[in-house]
Write a protein that binds this DNA or RNA. Structure first.
Lengths: 368, 368
DNA sequence: CGGTAGAGTGTGATCGGTAACATCAAGATC
DNA sequence: GATCTTGATGTTACCGATCACACTCTACCG
């Protein structure tokens, strides 16, 4: 009493053709066309050695003719490997996170993985756990968290055993989660030392949010460099990663004539500082030198072009994928977690100069 | 002769417990613990009405106890619905595309969809087709293309029948692919008219790449507005979306004393133009007015704060998802494709003023 | 009081692949 | 020549869900 009796195996009639048109062809269709069993088709797909060359070609030809695409869901179900990696992203509209996302996706594609993203509205523990849960539902084989706060790496510890994970861009948390990041303290040192070397007595710092390890590490790197040089260490006010925050703190610094050098937590902050200085009539770099952090594409066209500390976000993303794939391949959770640290690089442009020396701009003098 | 005889249905022994620990629990485990059939568990999961309240609670409790998560791959396989949407992204490190990506992901999550991304290194047809292919392998139910060139929307026509798709941020191509975008011509009109209203005799334009419909539409909107006002239409040089491009063209315009108003294809270009004007000693807005396009977060802190045309990228992303979900729900391919057009908005800041009138900056005068 | 409707639940088939095992011919080994 | 290996292929079970359908039991109807 079946209403839709399944067609016999020999059926290649119009009903089958209609199904293929509507839903695409499946392995059985390819097998039938090539005159082999579905298992042989599977062998061809997976580059199994024991297939005669002639058979292989026939199967490949049938696959092309039917525009066959293998079904990831079916494969995932039986192999328990989804070939998918998950990314947890935060503030992915900023240049840094967006670039890391790009780097990760690029590397994942090359490695034959699909990429699923879960952005979180904020970094509280529950949001992160929700994101992890969503990715787990998709049976991802690994998770990259672009979300550099301890809450996140802590939450990563919650991922089911056997699921690979890596945090990128944050700070070393010294726990069991592998991380990939740049040496923020060294970046801060580069910036600060650069300014000291130019002859500045000390360097002020407009920092990012202090609860971000990245901001904290930069503060520490700056502080230690000043200390090592015997320079006084000016106070640091808590700020945000935004141009607004830089502008607000910049106005205060601009009003203080003793300030000759400012190291900013990132390029956005530097943008705000530059405008505050400009509005106060303090010339950069003649009167005040400014250094940023990140080397966003725009920073080269700030007024003046910004000296900054470059971090290669895309490379950061790629490296995090290397670490993740390493975990997936090894499956030896005996090994200690990797902690990759990349070196930042100072990019000297026109926003820094020796104090007091009225170096003129290169291109053209101001008219008034 | 089976080496691993499957445990009987009543088995709740240590072997089962080990499997659950390693691979997670499945529906059968939940069913067993709750003393019901797997089908009843499925009914509870899918909010089927015909389940007794008490049974439902028992099942829910068992699910919680076993930390059960339903397997998306298995579901996808049998329902042919992956609950996953695909995003094709290009230059996703820029603020605009990154924001759209964010908006899409956000809306997708709320709608109960997962999101898989495929970024493309460039916009040639083959790259797009590869990306589509990769997403199809994942059985996505719809594709959003953040890649506003005709090659892309054309390629979208190639997606298998029945697969929803939408292009976001590009231009109306008048073909069968639905699109969501802003009215670029109107944005250009707003900018141009704003400058004309301030009393400028005409407005110069530093455009984006002419093979991008967005750039083209802005050029046309600018041109038509000038024409309607009886103003002369200065020539347009082909450019890129970058600050460098703006800087290079800006230097030429800065050298021409008759130039009093410049409309830029986007905020990056405006940044470059601002610096070129600054270096040439031409004051903004006293001598030259500048308008951007996009309203990136930084533009408010340019020197001076940039008057620009705001487009709500995140909203663009969200709306594109609405269109996509509408397609998925309807399945009436009879209906003509949606073309949603959002209105841009002029954000007047300090980079524009009437020509000749030596309006001083608000905050503080330049010192020299 | 038999018949029907519908709520609540269980059984078996199925999705499209892969893994394990079976088969079978041809050549190698003893 | 019988046995063993090995290459090439087919058969069947299985992954973990959902769907179609069957079944039981109660309520209500004429």
């Amino acid at each position: 009493m079946r209403l839709n009796p399944p067609p016999g195996d020999g059926d290649t009639g119009p009903a089958e053709a209609a199904r293929i048109r509507q839903r695409g062809s499946v392995m059985r269709d390819v097998a039938r066309l090539a005159g082999v069993s579905h298992q042989t088709v599977s062998r061809v797909l997976n580059d199994h050695p024991n297939v005669r060359q002639e058979t292989r070609l026939r199967v490949l030809e049938a696959m092309r003719a039917l525009n066959y695409r293998r079904n990831l869901a079916a494969r995932t179900l039986v192999t328990r490997r989804s070939r998918t990696l998950g990314i947890i992203g935060f503030e992915t509209t900023l240049f840094g996170p967006a670039s890391m996302l790009y780097g990760i996706e690029d590397a994942a594609r090359r490695a034959g993985y699909f990429v699923s993203v879960a952005t979180v509205p904020n970094l509280d523990r529950q949001s992160i756990l929700d994101a992890i849960d969503r990715l787990c539902q998709q049976s991802v084989e690994g998770i990259v968290a672009i979300a550099p706060k301890p809450t996140v790496t802590n939450a990563l510890l919650q991922v089911p055993a056997g699921l690979a994970s890596v945090g990128v861009g944050g700070a070393v948390d010294d726990d069991a989660v592998p991380t990939v990041r740049i040496d923020n303290a060294d970046g801060a040192r580069l910036a600060t030392q650069h300014l000291l070397d130019l002859g500045h007595a000390t360097v002020h710092h407009v920092a990012g949010p202090p609860d971000w390890p990245e901001a904290h590490e930069r503060i520490e790197g700056w502080r230690r460099t000043l200390y090592a040089a015997g320079a006084i260490v000016p106070p640091v006010e808590p700020g945000a990663w935004t141009a607004r925050s830089g502008y607000e703190q910049g106005r205060l610094l601009a009003a203080d004539p003793s300030v000759t050098a400012i190291f900013c937590g990132n390029d956005q902050i530097a943008l705000g500082v530059l405008r505050a200085l400009h509005e106060a009539g303090r010339r950069v770099p003649e009167q005040v030198s400014v250094v940023g952090f990140d080397d966003t594409p725009d920073s080269e066209y700030f007024i003046p072009p910004l000296t900054t500390v470059r971090q290669d976000f895309a490379e950061l993303g790629r490296r995090s994928l290397t670490v993740l794939l390493h975990q997936i391949d090894q499956q030896h959770d005996a090994a200690p977690p990797d902690h990759v640290v990349l070196a930042p690089e100072l990019v000297a442009r026109a926003s820094t100069a020796s104090p007091g020396r009225a170096r003129r701009r290169t291109r053209a003098p101001l008219s008034d």
